[in-house]
Simulated scan of single mutants.
Amino acid sequence: MSGLLGFEHVGMTSRDAEATIAFYCGLLGLSLVLRKSQPSGELLFLDAGGGMLEIMVPANADLNRSRDVLPTDAGMRHLTFAFADVDATFEKLEAAGVAVVERPRDAHNREMMHRVAFVRDPDGIIVELIQRAAGR
C-alpha cells in the first residue's frame, strides 16, 4: 500500500564536515548515523529524531557561504528544531560563539510555539530554535 510514512530528510551542502558535526551534533544534540567518503566528497546523515539532515561536503570545493532566502523569493528560509528550553539552549550556543540572528522571545504563533530564537550554522544557514506550545 502506498502512503506517507513520515518526514525523511532535508538535503544540504556544507563547506566543513567537522564544523557541521560539532554544531548539529555537539551543540544541538543530533546524532551522526552515517559518515561516508565518496569520490565526490563526504556524505553525512544526522538524525534529529523526527527526520534527518543529509549533508554533502564536496571534495576540493571552495563553496560560498549560504545566502538567505528573501521573503519575496521562494525557497527554504530556515531549519527548525524543538527544545524543552529555548533560553537554556540559546545560552549554550551563544557561549560557544554561534552567530546570533535573534535572541529568545515569545513566539508570534502561540498556538504552535511558546518561545523562539534564531542562530546561524557554520555555513550561515538560519536555524530556528523553538519551544513548543503547551499541549503540542
Results as ranks from 00 to 15, higher is better:
80 T>V: 13
73 D>G: 02
11 G>M: 11
112 M>D: 10
5 L>S: 14
106 D>K: 14
19 A>G: 04
55 I>W: 04
117 A>T: 04
30 L>H: 02
77 R>E: 13
128 E>W: 06
81 F>M: 14
12 M>I: 10
53 L>N: 03
91 E>K: 15
20 T>G: 02
79 L>F: 07
25 C>Q: 11
95 A>C: 04
90 F>L: 10
1 M>W: 05
69 V>P: 04
111 E>I: 12
136 R>F: 02
110 R>W: 01
14 S>C: 12
39 P>A: 10
67 R>D: 08
129 L>R: 11
61 A>E: 12
9 H>N: 13
42 E>Y: 02
85 D>A: 09
95 A>N: 13
50 G>N: 15
53 L>D: 05
37 S>G: 09
45 F>L: 14
62 D>W: 01
60 N>Y: 04
114 H>I: 00
48 A>Q: 07
109 N>A: 15
107 A>H: 03
34 L>Y: 03
102 E>F: 04
63 L>F: 06
68 D>P: 04
77 R>C: 06
48 A>D: 07
47 D>F: 02
113 M>P: 00
45 F>D: 03
22 A>S: 14
21 I>P: 04
80 T>C: 15
86 V>H: 05
10 V>G: 06
64 N>Q: 14
6 G>Y: 07
84 A>Q: 12
119 V>D: 04
55 I>D: 05
12 M>T: 07
16 D>S: 12
9 H>Y: 11
126 I>H: 00
56 M>Y: 09
89 T>V: 14
55 I>V: 15
35 R>I: 02
32 L>M: 11
125 I>K: 11
2 S>V: 13
51 G>S: 09
80 T>E: 13
52 M>W: 04
75 G>N: 07
113 M>K: 00
86 V>K: 02
109 N>W: 09
18 E>W: 00
104 P>M: 10
84 A>Y: 01
26 G>Q: 09
56 M>V: 12
28 L>R: 06
29 G>L: 09
44 L>Y: 06
36 K>S: 14
72 T>M: 03
63 L>T: 04
38 Q>W: 03
69 V>Q: 09
2 S>E: 11
84 A>D: 15
83 F>S: 06
20 T>M: 08
